[in-house]
Design a protein around this nucleic acid. Structure first.
Length: 938
RNA sequence: GCGGACGUGGCGGAAUUGGCAGACGCGCAAGACUUAGGAUCUUGUACCGCAAGGUGUGUGGGUUCAAGUCCCACCGUCCGCACCA
């Protein structure tokens, strides 16, 4: 009987033919036009009115580099930020959700260079970039993103980079921008300098090396004059600031930032080096006695250590090849030692710092000089060693017994190993049960001091403090803090970037371009083919200028451009006042909108961009331009969407194929399953593992794609693109749309009613489901951001609604006040309304369409976010599981308020439970009201 | 080597506070409607078993009336850092 009913109703549900009735392309375009016109009108009455009493919400996603096409790496964050912006608007917030372009940078320049080499004419990075932007803007519009385009910023346009230059001048003024000769990382392929942060470890053909983050070429060291920003001055503030944000940023980002700053507390210890004429590093390492050779001079050598407690175990001292003392030593040593040191230094310095670090052999050269340990007066040999970096003081006291690196070096060069830390009782033995022996392996944990004079018997921690204090008292060192963070090199010898606004004058030196002459325009007519020097040096006029200070006409402009990370270190402030041509931004406007409430972006920027952005914020704060110290209250890092690449390798072929090609090849016997490897990799055309979001929008509609990227899994997690998966969300959008359109007549012209109307149990259940959805959706949009689970709940509600319509036999229009189905219709209407609003942030077009179909006027975004009725959230009766010895054996239906006693009685009366209890006695009864009953029998 | 995250059906994933594991979706199977179906609808779908029932959240142990969730040890995958003294 029930089956008959279902069949007839499912037929009725099919009233709307899918192909003709579901024209998502048309309605999506209509609504986009509608929103667009509205937004423009709204922005006209901007500011004062808008900034009224409503609370603000600044929703920001990292602006893209205009690479030319929108890909999945963009679709996810923009869908997240747009959905949350729309949600917040429904919650009554005044929302700022802008978009712009990180438009300077190498790819555009490289593309132009390639084009020139191919012989194309009229190619220019600017043309590429602007064309790419126009194209990507069109693609974004098709997604229905509600960005504030009136505030669009382009980092490559003079009205923006004028202020990038302005900040630079302020830094120069405060001594935070400076020029120095530096050994830099040079990418021979991009022909430019890379910041330390832009160099990464690359593994290729089992070879590990330090490479360019962009093109993967092996980086080389190069000495060059370059501009640096003194970010290290802000190290402590950058570290402290993390405490403010750590609970609302992903833990990973915070730890990475912390590690990058790399604060370490230690002790500086001054050793006195006896420099002797004609010293020799060959032969036995025995300090000469005073009679043999007098030192020509004494030099102070400061070492940095975190383990001052081991200072009595020092058996040699080592300095970095870059250490300033090396030159003086070279002047004094005998010719053989001179050659050995000089060769060694040259060889080591020809490697990049990072290659040197990844080399596995520790090497060094004895200098023939000796250093005096200030605590025990011992003389120990001084080495130049490749494993010592110019970190801290560039010199270390070596304690082979208690430091692995020193241990390795000491064994290599047969240097003494002297134990001065006794392991605590529980660490006397190694994991394999052997007694700890420092001859075999360094013991690096804390312990108790021995053979350390007056510090004998102290714990390491206490000894470190005591020794530091004593050193300070005697003027031979003291506690000190070091950082791994280095100053930020921003000079780039490339064309497509922001010019550095300074002038070099023979008489006055470095002279800032006066503020009223900003911006220093980047000329268009430049030969940008890479030569290794800045393309701007080749421009006929760019350099020529007058010194603003002395008027000297042979002064010339700086020809380097800035690292593009500079451009993006302050852009979110410009959005708050994007068209201001008098100032970088209006302080009041920035104060109103900032800090950013939610910043969405990829993990790849966890260190670089975020640390620079935070640095700039602190600087703007110090200038008095912003009142906060941290720019992004909450940072949400989304995952990467990758694709599964299928590769076939056998005698006939070695190539990537699509899933269809694979099927065909296997069917034809041209490939065997064992020839196939599947790997999840970054989407790429050549690997056939990508998907073009714009093509998908065309095929399935924006709402489908938006839902799809969020439904794939938790947004912060990486996921693998499944071409089938989109069908699921597409079906859902259709079902939702169709259900509402075909059922709208059921709820037309409903008389006024409220939740007090008499609902049958099915209606109460539906109402419960709808209001639970409000709770769920609110929670997720408010901050948990597990959008996949909201979508799942919405799908459930659609299923519930359809089942409800069928079960209640709701048909036709409202038959007046006597209609017995009024309460059910009212419930249905409310469920529709809740469903549409819950989905509106993610699938706005269909939500608008559904709202209109139900007679809604204007936009669904004018409606308030729904509020759950507490009464609807609880059911009169609940179904509880009953366990016997921890296994579910039945369920009981009981009134919601039932206490433990009632639950126990109901549980024991349950048939399934009784059956399992036969012949056994009840040992214990646990009844948790609202949760579960467990009967323990034995 | 150090640090972090993760491990649940054929697949993506859910289970937010220790309380019915597998929501929702994909895929698959059967059926309905169809000239047709990558459309739509219905039903089923963790595994073993005809069934009763048993087993089950990487492995092994533990705590608990009750463990995907808490504790201990191990295995595996991914990511980050990597001579920072």
């Amino acid at each position: 009987m029930a089956d008959k009913e279902k069949t007839s109703s499912s037929r009725r549900m099919r009233v709307i033919d899918q192909d003709e009735g579901f024209n998502f392309a048309a309605y999506e375009a209509d609504w986009q036009k509608f929103w667009n016109e509205r937004r423009v009108k709204e922005s006209e009455r901007e500011t004062a009115e808008r900034r009224g009493s409503r609370k603000k919400f600044y929703a920001l996603s990292m602006f893209p580099y205009p690479s030319g096409v929108l890909h999945f790496g963009h679709a996810l964050p923009y869908t997240i930020i747009d959905s949350l912006a729309r949600y917040k608007r429904m919650k009554g917030f005044d929302v700022l959700c802008p978009m712009g372009w990180d438009a300077f940078g190498l790819p555009a320049e490289n593309a132009a260079i390639e084009a020139v080499r191919r012989g194309e004419k009229d190619v220019h990075p600017k043309t590429n970039t602007l064309a790419n932007i126009a194209h990507m803007r069109g693609q974004m519009d098709k997604f229905g993103y509600s960005f504030d385009w009136e505030r669009e910023v382009f980092t490559c346009k003079p009205d923006y980079y004028k202020w990038t230059q302005w900040i630079f001048l302020k830094m120069l003024d405060k001594g935070l921008a400076y020029r120095k000769k530096a050994r830099v990382n040079w990418c021979p392929s991009c022909k430019t300098v890379l910041a330390n942060e832009q160099v990464e470890t690359i593994v290729k053909d089992h070879d590990e090396f330090q490479g360019c983050f962009r093109c993967g070429s092996k980086v080389e060291p190069k000495e060059i004059d370059a501009w640096f920003l003194r970010i290290t001055d802000y190290a402590d503030r950058l570290l402290d600031g993390l405490k403010q944000v750590e609970k609302d940023w992903s833990e990973l980002v915070v730890t990475q930032q912390r590690n990058w700053i790399g604060r370490s507390e230690g002790v500086n210890i001054d050793f006195e080096v006896e420099l002797r004429q004609g010293a020799s590093g060959s032969g036995p390492l025995v300090p000469p006695n005073a009679a043999e050779s007098k030192p020509v001079e004494h030099a102070r050598l400061t070492v940095f250590t975190t383990r001052a407690d081991t200072v009595f175990g020092v058996t040699y001292v080592a300095i970095a090849p870059e250490h300033p003392l090396v030159n003086r030593i070279l002047e004094l040593v005998d010719s053989r030692t001179h050659k050995r040191i000089a060769d060694f230094v040259e060889e080591t310095l020809s490697m990049t710092e990072m290659d040197r670090a990844s080399g596995d052999e520790k090497e060094g050269v004895a200098t023939g000089m000796y250093a005096v340990n200030p605590l025990n007066g011992e003389k120990v040999p001084l080495f130049v060693a490749n494993y010592v970096l110019m970190y801290g003081t560039g010199a270390v006291m070596a304690v082979p017994a208690h430091d692995e690196r020193d241990h390795e070096f000491a064994r290599e060069y047969r240097l003494p190993i002297k134990a001065v830390i006794e392991p605590p009782a529980d660490k006397r033995q190694t994991d394999s049960g052997r007694i700890v022996d420092v001859k075999r392996k360094a013991f690096c944990d804390y312990g108790i001091l021995r053979d350390s004079g007056k510090y004998n018997g102290q714990q390491s921690e206490a000894a470190i403090k005591a020794i530091a204090a004593d050193l300070k008292a005697s003027g031979k060192g003291g506690p000190v803090v070091n950082y791994k963070l280095r100053d930020w090199g921003i000079s780039r010898q490339r064309y497509w970037g922001c010019p550095i606004p300074v002038i070099h004058c023979e008489k006055c030196g470095i002279v800032p371009v006066p503020e009223n002459q900003l911006p220093v325009l980047l000329p268009d007519d430049v030969d940008f083919l890479p030569t290794g020097q800045s393309p701007l040096t080749l421009h006929p006029d760019f350099q020529k200028t007058k010194c603003p200070r002395c008027g000297n006409t042979s002064a010339r402009r700086d020809t380097d451009t800035m690292d593009t990370f500079v451009d993006s270190s302050w852009y979110w402030y410009r959005y708050t006042d994007a068209k201001n041509d008098k100032a970088i931004f209006d302080k009041e406007k920035a104060k109103h909108w900032c800090p950013v409430d939610l910043y969405v972006g990829g993990r790849e920027h966890a260190i670089l961009h975020l640390i620079y952005a935070r640095f700039y914020t602190k600087f703007l704060h110090d200038l008095g331009l912003v009142d906060h110290d941290e720019p992004f209250t909450r940072m949400f890092t989304h995952g990467l969407i990758q694709g599964e690449a299928i590769k076939i390798v056998n005698e006939q072929m070695s190539r990537y194929v699509t899933a269809e090609q694979l099927e065909k090849l296997i069917a034809e016997g041209k490939a065997k399953p064992e020839d196939v490897t599947r790997r999840v990799e970054k989407m790429s055309k050549s690997k056939f593992n990508g998907a073009d979001p714009t093509a998908l929008v065309q095929q399935y509609g924006a709402d489908t794609v938006r839902l799809c990227v969020l439904f794939m899994g938790p947004a912060e997690q990486d996921s693998v693109w499944d071409p089938q998966g989109i069908l699921g969300t597409h079906r859902f959008v259709k079902r939702w749309h169709e259900t509402i359109l075909s059922s709208a007549p059921l709820v037309e012209n409903l008389p006024d009613m409220d939740e007090s109307c008499r609902m049958n149990p099915a209606a109460k259940a539906l109402r419960h489901a709808a209001h639970m959805l409000i709770e769920k959706a609110t929670q997720e949009y408010e901050g948990r951001y597990a959008f996949n689970t909201v979508i799942a709940k919405c799908m459930e509600l659609v299923n519930d609604i359809r089942a409800f319509i069928t079960a209640e036999k709701l048909e036709g229009v409202v038959k007046g006040a006597q209609d017995s189905s009024l309460a059910s219709r009212w419930t249905l209407n409310e469920a529709f309304s809740i469903l549409n609003r819950a989905l509106a942030p993610i699938a706005p077009h269909t939500a608008e369409e559904a709202n209109k179909a139900l007679g809604g006027k204007g936009s669904i975004f004018d409606q308030p976010w729904p509020k759950a009725d507490p009464a609807a959230l609880v059911l009169d009766e609940v179904e509880l599981p009953v366990q016997v010895n921890g296994k579910v054996r039945g369920t009981i239906r009981v009134p919601r308020e039932s206490d433990a006693k009632a639950l126990e009685a109901a549980a024991l009366a349950n048939e399934g439970v009784k059956k399992m209890m036969e012949g056994k006695t009840v040992k214990k009864l646990i009844a948790v009201p609202g949760k579960i009953v467990n009967v323990v029998v034995g």
